[in-house]
Amino acid sequence: MISALLPNVVTVQAATTEVNTSTILEEFSESDIIEEIDSFITVDSGKLSITNEPLLEELINNNLEAANAAFNPDSALESTNDIIVSIKDQLHTVNEGIDNNELFVQADKEIVELNQFSTMANGYSDWAHEIRRHWWGVKRIFRSKAAASSFAYEMSTSGNMVGATSVLLVGAPPAAGAVILSGIYLNQMASSINHKMNLYSKIYLNVTYALIFATGEHKD
């Protein structure tokens, strides 16, 4: 496997994570809950870990349906503990990759792959269509209608579900029990991208490793 050329990185300082305790009792949609849960994840000694787990449990317990929709591909509603376990499993997978010198986590929690072509090396990620890999999945940021429309068209016309999965998750394997991609799923995603791009000048597409997606307005 050919390594991508990457910047020479020496150390990573722990990211400062500020948890707004006033939001714990608020209700969030599945498109927002990922960002809220991510505020409890910090970089410590080059690895990812949970900070203030009791407050995270309270947040999930108050937003169980949204958290379930974001992380659980099955229809059955999981418990708060099940979702915490799922989050810890995903963090463990990333930290294993760091231990094996396959992944590197930046101070902002974005993940860089060390042992394979990165999206930047492939020329896939740029300002108009930026790709960021995180512990929970992949965030795509579209800053032009042309870039969003092109990706939406690519998804809606894809006849290769395995290939589409690889594109969506930037080559990473989906979580065990992840939803099975179908033409309906990809058409719904394409429709959501096009609809949001008609409303906003910049949008995001979040895809979790369970292949749950959400779109919304992106603010730089």
Rank of each mutant, 00 (worst) to 15 (best):
F40L: 03
V105W: 10
V9I: 15
D38G: 05
S150V: 03
I141G: 03
F104M: 14
G183N: 05
L5N: 10
M1S: 09
S166P: 00
T119F: 06
L181T: 01
F40H: 13
S182F: 05
I83P: 03
S22D: 14
R143A: 12
S22I: 07
E57Q: 11
A70E: 03
V9C: 09
T119R: 02
L5D: 12
D99A: 08
E58D: 12
T165V: 12
A4D: 14
A152R: 01
L114N: 13
Q116E: 14
N101D: 15
N194Y: 03
I34H: 02
E217K: 15
I87Y: 08
T11W: 10
A146D: 15
Q106T: 14
L6R: 10
K202E: 15
M161R: 03
G97V: 04
K139V: 11
V170F: 00
R143Q: 13
I83F: 04
Y124W: 10
I84V: 07
T16G: 11
I60Y: 08
Q90W: 03
L186C: 07
P174Y: 01
I24L: 15
F213P: 00
E30W: 03
Q90S: 14
A152N: 04
V105Q: 10
M189H: 01
F71G: 02
I84Q: 10
H129L: 05
N95I: 01
D99K: 05
S144R: 01
N8F: 13
A176C: 00
A146P: 00
D44S: 13
P173Y: 05
T208F: 02
A210L: 05
R132C: 09
I84T: 06
T21C: 00
L64R: 04
L103T: 02
N206L: 13
K145M: 13
F104R: 10
I141R: 02
G163L: 04
L77I: 08
V167D: 07
M120G: 05
L25T: 12
A176E: 13
A15R: 08
Q188R: 04
